[in-house]
Amino acid sequence: MSKLQINLHRNLRRTVLRGHPWIYKDAVVPVKAKIAQICQVMDGKNEFLAWAYFDPHSPLCLRILSLDKKPPTFETYEARFQTAFEIRKSVIDPQTNSYRLFNGEGDLLPGLICDIYNDIAVLQFDGQGANEFWNKQQIADWIIQNGICKTVVEKLRRQTQGGILKLAGEDCENEVIATEHGVKFMVNLEKGQKTGFFLDQRENRNYIQSVSRDKSVLNLFSYSGGFSVYAGLGGARKVASLDVAEGAIELAERNWQLNGLDPAKHTGLCVDVFEYLNSATEVWDHIIVDPPSMGHSEEHKERAKVKYIELFATVAKKVRAGGQLSVSSCSSHISFEDFFEIINESLSQSKRRGRILRVSGQGPDHPFPHSCHELRYLKFVHLILN
């Protein structure tokens, strides 16, 4: 069967050869293909440039698979699976059984995500194109055959039916206990956000443990209480977890107890964070703000920056004199440069000044291509305020 050929009408040869993994629809000569499939990418001179998979459902219509002249095969991907697993060995130890195994373009596996929770692998596909292109069963079988997990499930997108679907291995429950740095979290695979938990914040959570002794800590948009539990284990004198989702607060309470922490030192509140901030008068030693993404596209970037500024400025006013503020963003459309601008404007509006103690992002199990900083999406900044 002949492979689809896609021609470019913009000169992107240098960009692609430098390793950028994406080509958008406006650079491509239109084709009639209706489903995602492998294709040859040809430059404006009709010379071979790369192999990619074509996604007719997205403005990001080409995701680069290989620069080799021969088309990639499943054996090509198997070698990349193995390389990805070797990289994760720096993360896996007796204290950490949960990590990201495949991180899409960062592992030369565009659109393919796989998170490991103890002995369960959770696959997720970035959009309809990735869902059509990747052979789920072959991937699941490879994971089982290589002894990485006992079960492989797919986390279905909420735009469809949601939930999980077993692909290979043993039957499993919807909940699993994940461990990182010896800290335990109950993860709901079916109802949890993303694949169930935010593994990308693992090293930042661990850092919070080191700076929490004897502090009052407020965790906003807490989800299942990741930062809260680490603060408690770090010796915080009191911790509050706030989230609008009742299920998230219930899970935060369970995770607090799962780690043997004193229930009297933790408060879980199911509230709208914005409404809380507008009415609350209490000040805190340390406030952690990790909101859901506010910028889902480049088109909405400026609006998102305004929202972040308003939120962070309001929060900064609730930090006591000499207290600390940790802010984070998972929006790929907000760069680190944008994020520092947001912090500067937030502190200016709140009439506070800060010194930065830590700047970080996602952990080493979330690699990204050197030429695609959009995939360095997670930003985390810890400040001490005047």
Rank of each mutant, 00 (worst) to 15 (best):
Y230S: 00
V29Q: 15
F185N: 04
V152E: 01
G268V: 06
R100S: 07
I288E: 05
C149P: 04
F133V: 02
E341T: 14
S98M: 05
N103R: 00
E203C: 11
D285W: 11
F197A: 06
R358C: 05
W256I: 02
G104S: 10
R157I: 13
A178F: 04
I356P: 09
G19V: 00
N46G: 12
I334R: 09
A52F: 09
Q324I: 06
Q40H: 14
G247P: 10
Q193L: 10
W134F: 04
V152P: 00
V183K: 01
D171T: 14
G234W: 05
I208F: 06
T160G: 08
T15K: 15
E203A: 12
E341H: 03
I23K: 02
L65F: 01
A264E: 15
A252Y: 08
D55A: 13
R376D: 15
Y24H: 13
A316L: 05
G225V: 02
H296Y: 13
L258Y: 10
R205L: 01
L277M: 04
I287Q: 08
K215W: 05
I116K: 01
L269Y: 12
Y377G: 02
R376L: 08
I356T: 13
K215S: 02
L325Y: 14
E175H: 11
G225A: 02
K89P: 03
E78W: 03
K150F: 05
D26K: 14
Q138H: 09
H366S: 07
I287D: 09
V31E: 10
L189W: 08
S346D: 09
V176P: 02
T314V: 11
L165A: 11
I6V: 13
F227Y: 10
C330W: 11
N11K: 15
H181Y: 15
K34C: 03
